[in-house]
Write a protein that binds this DNA or RNA. Sequence first.
DNA 1: ATGGTGGTCCTACCA
Length: 269
Amino acid sequence: MGFTVATWNINSVRLRLPLVASLLEAYQPDVLCLQETKCPNGSFPESDLKKLGYKHIAFHGQKGYHGVAIISRVPLRDVERRDFCNMGDTRHISAIAQAGDRSIRIHNFYVPAGGDEPDREVNRKFAHKLDFLEEMKDLHAEAESDDGVSSILVGDLNIAPLETDVWSHKKLLKVVSHTPIETDGLNEVQAKGGWVDLMRQHIPPEEKIFTWWSYRAREWDTADKGRRLDHIWSSADLSPSLDDITVLREARGWERPSDHVPVFARFAF
DNA sequence: ATGGTGGTCCTACCA
């Protein structure tokens, strides 16, 4: 059977609900994980999405900022919402998705952006980002393998770890999202947790991949000053079944776009 | 070197 999971930082799910709906209709992922929904729980557009066949929805939102959601056409169970750094931010949600006879826990993250100054002593937001990464190191891909549950981790991790994950490695070495302390930290989260970077398993590290282009930069397409901030990881048992990765670059050119584009991982079990 | 754009919600704050 096939199974497709997608991740997208939507930057307001209510403003861009028509884009979410057309994405679901056109690409039919089994599970779509959203970040930056910017939507309190009472206002989440649940019924609109259910009408499209996505009857299993879990969300974790707050007014104005952050917010994550899992939208699924396969059953979800054991939903968890973790408060990383104990700040009350809605930056994580996870649930076990039933993909045929497989159970897969899907973690959906919105990692703090970290502000402008890459120095934890003078910038509290950067300190928060590093502390958040530290806490993520305790998250193990095999945590529920004894119960027959595999793992997928997706989201806007706000870090571009490889040189080819940014438009200019040299120019961005001191720019938050690509500093060594962040990229080392993310690599450690990956290694300690036993996670496989599925995007880089499928697309060789020599090849540039971007999933985000700033609203502030003009001519996003031709200038192409992007970064790979969005990621799809899995436990080692799933990686041999990865069939395809799609970065939907064209979505950045849609009317009133998010600054991030959707990324899909397709499995063939 | 600076400021550029966009979202929330109404005054700054965040990305």
